[in-house]
Design a protein around this nucleic acid. Structure first.
Length: 546
DNA sequence: ATAGGGTTAG
């Protein structure tokens, strides 16, 4: 019996039904505030909620269709302790009693499911809500989309945003911008660009400068400088003015695309323009560009220009220079920037020390490197993943694989560091070079166990390692796995494999490799693999021979 | 919610 033990089954029969029914006729979520529930409806809601909590499997018999108005049902949902139970009651009321749920009930339930992390259910109820003609309003749509985005469900989120015109909902730039930045953070640049253009066409979305900045940054990241500048030119036709950030993204994009000189020119130009003055970030991008090319005199000249204009270098600026000098083999200059940094009241951070360690290692000053590594604790600096990677890489280069593996173990004990492929790669490479391909393979398996996915370097190292040992079929299997997981290969991967196949007298295999290589459009990055159900599914049943 | 710094295969 449904209400067994409950003290109030009788009064149910004596409620003023017609009044209840008339008080619950709102039909659209955009209507003015719904009328408050009648006290009797509240009473029913409480009774139903209590009964349902006590016995969720019981039928709703006593709460006949006439008694349970949509408003009472909505009130009952609010009285249930969990999202699951609210959903169960919601569905039972509809299927057993034929209650046509109110927009309010839909909104409440979808909101509750989202807040409880049950986005799959939330989206189902949302779809049902829309198909019953209850169009979500703009703020509700934004709420659901945001909640999905925060839960990392970017594809459902994009589908919601693309339905905005169906609901005639305006989208705030914030909502779209957030999704676009998340897409770009996962290297799904094209998806971000596509979302942006769809939204621009919809007329219900007015972008702001941030929207453009995000997409321009994405285009720069994939090296599409031309596209980035085209978008930049279009900003004014959407009544957006480029700001300092826009300019900085473009200058940095040029510098990373090995067009430092153009980046430098652009910096000078925006300084002459005077509308959007370059700042320390702009200068640091150009300095970093010159450092990456080993053009240290020019880097230092820009540094001095900056100081001459009264712009104070930041810690990043100093770090860029220190790293640049170290890589250029000029440790005395690195040391002098380091001293200057301290004099300017800018204490070194982990990056500074990591760059110095790297510089010392490259320049054969092992003792200095180890000294810095050992002294990090006294400076209250903790080595991070890059510090470990630098040390591990160096030890491997010196054939000190054992010590490198000790550091790897130490790193794995750090719960605050998520291991990445570049930490493992030098060790795998070192093992391959001493002919220990089997251990190299087992390190890769260990990586995968930790959900640290091999990147194109890992695969290429292993392909070469197997070829050198004459284990050609395994090398091919690794290549196939690389393609299947959506990891982009490059010219080096292909040429190494092809060279080995030819040497092994397997020219017929070359053809099939070339076919696989050309047929698969390489993805941008292996990190997008986790996000792509297709490639995950494809990789699931392909395992590499060990 | 957007901008600059560190690590890698032959």
């Amino acid at each position: 019996m449904l209400l067994r033990g409950a003290p109030y089954p009788k009064p149910l029969r004596r409620l003023p039904l017609p009044l209840l029914l008339s008080s619950s006729s709102s039909s659209s979520s955009s209507a003015a505030a719904a009328p408050p529930p009648h006290p009797a409806e509240l009473w029913i809601a409480k009774a139903l909620a209590t009964a349902f909590v006590l016995s969720p499997s019981a039928r709703l018999g006593p709460f006949g269709p006439l008694l349970l108005t949509p408003l009472a049902a909505s009130e009952a949902l609010r009285r249930l302790p969990t999202a699951d139970s609210a959903l169960a009651l919601f569905e039972l009321a509809r299927s057993a009693l034929g209650v046509a749920h109110s927009p309010d009930a839909y909104r409440f339930l979808v909101g509750l499911l989202c807040r409880s992390g049950l986005h799959g259910d939330a989206l189902k109820v949302f779809d049902e809500m829309a198909s019953h003609g209850h169009s979500p309003d703009a703020s509700f749509l934004a709420f659901v989309a945001n909640s999905c985005a925060e839960a990392g469900l970017l594809d459902p989120c994009i589908r919601l945003l693309n339905r905005a015109s169906e609901f005639n909902s305006r989208l705030e730039p914030y909502t779209v911008n957030k999704v676009m930045s998340l897409l770009i953070a996962r290297n799904r640049i094209q998806d971000a660009v596509f979302l942006f253009s769809e939204q621009l066409n919809s007329q219900l979305f007015m972008p702001d400068a941030w929207s453009f900045n995000i997409v321009i940054k994405g285009l720069c990241r994939i090296g599409d400088i031309k596209g980035a500048f085209e978008l930049f030119e279009k900003m004014s036709s959407f009544r957006c003015s480029p700001d300092t950030v826009t300019h900085n993204i473009l200058v940095d994009g040029l510098c990373r695309a090995e067009q430092v000189d153009r980046g430098h020119e652009m910096l000078q130009r925006i300084r002459m323009d005077g509308t959007c003055m370059p700042n320390v970030v702009t200068y640091t991008s150009v300095i970093s560009g010159y450092c990456k090319m080993g053009r240290m005199e020019e880097a230092f000249r820009v540094f001095n220009d900056m100081i001459g204009l009264g712009i104070k270098p930041s810690r990043v600026t100093y770090n860029v220079l220190i790293d640049g000098y170290g890589k250029a083999g000029d440790m005395p200059s690195a040391a002098s920037v380091y001293e200057r940094m301290a004099l300017c009241g800018c204490p070194p951070d982990v990056v500074t020390i990591t760059s110095l360690i790297d510089g010392h290692c490259r320049n054969g000053q092992l003792d200095d490197a180890l000294k810095l590594w050992n002294e990090m604790g006294q400076r209250e600096l903790r080595p991070n993943i890059y510090t470990f990677a630098t040390m591990i890489n160096f030890l491997c280069k010196k054939n000190r694989l054992g010590e490198a593996q000790v550091l790897l173990k130490e790193l794995n004990e750090r719960t605050d560091i998520i291991p990445r492929a570049f930490v493992y790669n030098p060790i795998i490479d070192g093992l391959c070079k001493v002919g220990n391909v089997d251990e190299a393979n087992s390190i890769m398996l260990e990586m995968e166990r930790k959900k640290c996915f091999p990147d194109k370097y890992t695969y290429t190292i292993l392909i070469i390692g197997h070829c050198m040992k004459g284990r050609i079929s395994e090398a091919i299997a690794i290549f196939e796995k690389m393609v299947a997981t959506g990891c982009a290969h490059d010219g080096v991967t292909i040429s190494c494999l092809v060279t080995c196949l030819l040497k092994a007298g397997m020219p017929n295999k070359v053809e099939s490799i070339m076919l696989i290589a050309s047929g698969s459009s390489p993805r941008l990055d292996t990190s997008s693999v986790q996000d792509s159900p297709l490639s995950v599914r494809k990789s699931a049943d392909i395992s590499v021979a060990v």
